[in-house]
Every structure is written in C-alpha cells, then in structure tokens.
C-alpha cells in the first residue's frame, strides 16, 4: 500500500532493527508484565539457597514426618490425624499462614513453599539449558541443511521427519527409561543417572526437529537473498558469508524461538518428572512435586496445585513474551513492509 515507508534493504539486521524491536517490546504492556513476573519468579528461585532456610526454618529436602512446629504459641504436629470420622491415617499440615510451612507440608513432612523454590531452581535451570542446547543443535542442523541444500538437506530433513514422527513425550520417555537406571556413557564420559544433564540433553534432543525447521526455512530464504548472492559473487569465503550474513539473520528466528522452546521444555520436564523419569529424588522439581501431591489431591490439594500454578505462570509468561518478541521482530511483517 501507499503507506509504505521505504527502508533501504540492509544486508544484516542492523542495530536499528534490534533497537526498534526493543522499543516495540517495551511499549507492549503484556510482554513487559510477563517479563516482570518471569524475573521475579526466576530470582526468587535462583536465590533460594541464600534466604529460604532463614525464612522457612526447615530443610526442604530432609523428611520431617515426626517433627512439629510452634504456631501461635502452640506446638503442632506436622503430620496430623485425618479429618475423616474415624481419624484414620495422617495428613500433612495444611497452609499455616506463617513463614514456616507457609503452604503446609507434603507427605514427607517437608515445607512445600521451600521445596517450591528449590524445585523451581531445577525446573527453570533444566528448561533454560535444554532450550539453549536445543537452539544450538537446531542451528547446527538447520543452517547446514538450509545453506548447503541438495543431498545434505535431503538427509537431514528426512532425519528430522523421522524424529518428528515419534510423539515428543514418547520419544523423551523412551530416552529417559534407557538412561534412568544406568546413566549415559559416551566414550570416556559417564553421566550418572541422577545428573540433571540427562533430562536437559533428552529434552533438547526431542525438540530439535521442532526448532530446526524454521531455522532451515530462514536460511533457505536468506541463501537466495540478493546480498548473500552478492557476497558470494564477490568471492567472500563461505565461512564469512555464514558467520556475518546468515547467522545474524538467523539470530532473529532463534530469539523468537527461545522463550517458546523454554516453555515447551518446562512442560516436558514436568511431565518427565511427574512420571519419575526426570529429576530424581531427593532433588525436586515442580513436576516431581505434582507427583508427590497426587496421592494427597483430595485431602491437601495445595501440595499439587502450588507447583502446577508455578508452572502455569512461568509457561504463560514465556508464551506471552514469545508472542511479543515474534510481533516485535516479525520477519513476515518486515518483508511485507519493505515490499
């Protein structure tokens, strides 16, 4: 349309593109709220070792079934008789409204609020690392396939198709069950079964086809772009073209994919942990906490609901942020505008 504001075609996304995107993003209230929520949750979880103990006065990992706490001057058992008519069995204490056992205890008598923070550390760390690793692998695959094309592309694309045909969670479950008892041994390196690297690697691996496809598509478009042809005609070595012309443009795709991948990874991690295939006891994650709460869902729903809500908040924030980034950096929009 005639509203086009002519912008000169630039070879690599210039600083102004990023700056403009940042400005758009800063003006987007939704994205900024999401970012703020995300920062608060991440900081609260990452800094847990610095303050959680002083606030909660319990160990988030040690079982505390026989223990008791003092509330309003009364000593209260952490495991209490059930409210059912026969008072059979014991239920952990519910939310206390005090800093100790703020959200009550789980079936092992551990402080849920404190575990939420430590579990969040693991969940966030795994999902962030998995997202980064996945982006790295996808860039490798996508750029190779997209830039070299031909046979290389056919083989890699077919391989991605094959991997993508296996349902993501089933694929992750298969890999997990193989490694859950004996860990992973690659040449001289051994990764123990309870190492957090294992879920990271598995989750990163299963999402490679998901992320490699857009990267490949972007590279294919770029390879045909005039500035790349020009650079190649001028005899610029291939590695320079890749490094200075292709990669900076691919970066846009990666930045948009990042939060979405982290959201997917967090959900995958919680699912694996829920199935006892992710984070291994005594370490916690939000997924293992939901599993812990499954048996208590009718008597102490908070045990499962709290970590679930934490997941929902973080994933929602990541998705909103991802949408905001996509709109701010919208590649399709940019090309349409320049036409």
């Amino acid at each position: 349309m005639t509203t086009d504001l002519q912008t000169p075609a630039s070879p690599a996304p210039s600083v102004s593109l990023w700056r403009q995107a940042a400005r758009t993003l800063l003006a987007d209230k939704g994205s900024m709220t999401a970012l703020a929520v995300l920062c608060i949750i991440v900081l609260a979880c990452l800094l847990a070792p610095l303050y959680a103990h002083y606030v909660a006065h319990t160990d988030a990992f040690a079982s505390n079934v026989a223990g008791s706490i003092v509330l309003n001057g009364h000593e209260v058992d952490i495991m209490q008789p059930n409210d059912n008519p026969l008072h059979l069995g014991l239920s952990p204490i519910g939310p206390t409204g005090h800093t100790a056992y703020l959200l009550g205890a789980d079936s092992q008598g551990r402080d849920i609020a404190a575990r939420l923070l430590y579990g969040g550390r693991n969940s966030l760390m795994i999902s962030a690392c998995a997202a980064v690793l996945c982006l790295f692998l996808s860039t490798l695959v996508g750029v190779t396939a997209g830039y070299f094309g031909g046979i290389t592309d056919s083989i890699l694309s077919r391989l991605m198709d094959i991997m993508w045909a296996v349902p993501v969670y089933l694929f992750a479950i298969s890999l997990s069950i193989i490694t859950v008892r004996h860990g992973l041994q690659i040449g001289p390196f051994t990764i123990e079964a309870d190492n957090l690297l294992i879920p990271i690697i598995i989750i990163a691996l299963v999402y490679v086809p998901y992320a490699a496809r857009p990267v490949r598509g972007r590279v294919m478009v770029l390879r045909q772009a005039e500035f790349v042809t020009a650079a190649r005609c001028l005899g610029v070595p291939q590695w320079r073209v890749l490094l200075f012309d292709i990669l900076p443009n691919v970066l846009i795709t990666l930045v948009v994919l990042g939060p979405l991948l982290m959201a997917l990874s967090l959900l995958a991690e919680s699912a694996l942990s829920f199935l006892s295939l992710g984070v291994q006891a005594p370490a916690a994650s939000w997924g293992t906490m939901i599993q812990d709460g499954e048996g208590l869902i009718y008597s102490r729903p908070v045990v499962a609901i709290a970590p679930g809500l934490a997941i929902v908040f973080v994933v929602l924030a990541l998705n909103i942020l991802g949408d905001g980034l996509r709109d701010a950096l919208d590649i399709r929009n940019a090309t349409r505008r320049s036409r």
Binding site: S270, Y298, I305, I311, V315, L316, N319
Partner: peptide
Amino acid sequence: GLVGISMPVFWLGQVANLISLS
C-alpha cells in the same frame, strides 16, 4: 488460548478430578 497451552495436562486433570469428584 495462551493459558490453555501453558497448563500441564496431568495437573489440569488432577484439578478437574479435585473439582468434579471432591
């Protein structure tokens, strides 16, 4: 839609059970 894709399905199932059965 965003909330829908942000909920772990097993957790949502538990919550649904909690509401409808308890």
